[in-house]
Write a protein that binds this DNA or RNA. Sequence first.
DNA 1: TCACATACATACTGGTTGGTATGTTTTGAT
DNA 2: ATCAAAACATACCAACCAGTATGTATGTGA
Lengths: 199, 199
Amino acid sequence: MTMADADKTRLALLDAAYEEIYRNGFQSASLNTILQRTGVTKGALYHHFSSKLKLGYTVVDEIISHKLDEDWLTPMQRTGHPINILIEVIQQAGQKMTREEIQLGCPLNNLAQEMSPIDPGFRQRIDLLYRQWHQGIERLLIDGQQSGAVRSTVNPADTALFILASIEGCLGIAKNSQSIDELKRCAEGLFGYLETLRS
Amino acid sequence: MTMADADKTRLALLDAAYEEIYRNGFQSASLNTILQRTGVTKGALYHHFSSKLKLGYTVVDEIISHKLDEDWLTPMQRTGHPINILIEVIQQAGQKMTREEIQLGCPLNNLAQEMSPIDPGFRQRIDLLYRQWHQGIERLLIDGQQSGAVRSTVNPADTALFILASIEGCLGIAKNSQSIDELKRCAEGLFGYLETLRS
DNA sequence: TCACATACATACTGGTTGGTATGTTTTGAT
DNA sequence: ATCAAAACATACCAACCAGTATGTATGTGA
């Protein structure tokens, strides 16, 4: 067994754990289910992760963090009109979502709502990712102000916070209604707000 | 033992169940904890509620529904400038929240995010409350358009949906950051948006 | 006062949970 | 070839879970 094989089982565990947590929440996620799905034994799991909590932490640090980069942070680094970039990134993220993903919601927000009140370890890790997300939006607004594309009266930090809240809010509403149409209508409201930020 | 006594234990169970669910989510809510806190026995609980699921449903139908009326629907029925009413109701709801409640989030949204993907019974009941909430906001916007206080170009239904999403989004962000200041800054963003709706 | 339903109370069950103790195999450096 | 550490595998455990079976006390209408 090479070290690459060991790493493969570790990643398989993380992938399965992410799925299980995404579908059931962390507290209701079953280690036995994760083991069944991967074919890994309990001994192997506890060799790689010292507890269920550590497994959950690593899912945030590695899997969810990577998805945030891929779907939001990297796309937001494009050059162009900041408001247009923001709208396009949101639209692309929305179109990328399957019906099932709309129903399951935002993995980061799910964990935040469930775990932040009851576990500081989760809260801090989630907070770090939210800060990165927030910073990405804030940077777009600051750049937009410097290029004259965004009204100079808007507070970049506060506005970025509200945009982030609205994105999660729209996803949350659509999650409960289980309706793609409602997600689109909600996003239209968000786009309407973003338009008011232009100079 | 009078019928009033029986109703008292039923309500005690509902109150304790609400608290337990609010703090831990439905799936992780422990019936034994609810029984300990109330001093009620398991036989009594299952006399009043045929299952944990039915207990949870009743918490939504009676406790959470009542809180929605009290904190949002009734205050929104005041007369005056619709946008002002909306801002005031949001501010009052925010000020009413304790530090702990900010940390625990919106009871309705918590349940929606946890249960809507995995149980249709919860989903439908939560959806009903969200529709009432949405309708209350929509009505304010329609009234505002008729009185000339709100721009005629805004779509009341879509805008109400986005406002609702933003409220829940702001509460969700504040829940994770556990910061009253961040809740206020996020709400300021929302108020800024609401201002753009005026004629 | 009798009959019956309501409103509990107690003790228990099967299943699942995260976690552990103890073994075995594999790997890689010496 | 040897040896220690890494990478598993198996079997087990106590605690907890929702739910149930059975019994009892109490109120209420006939």
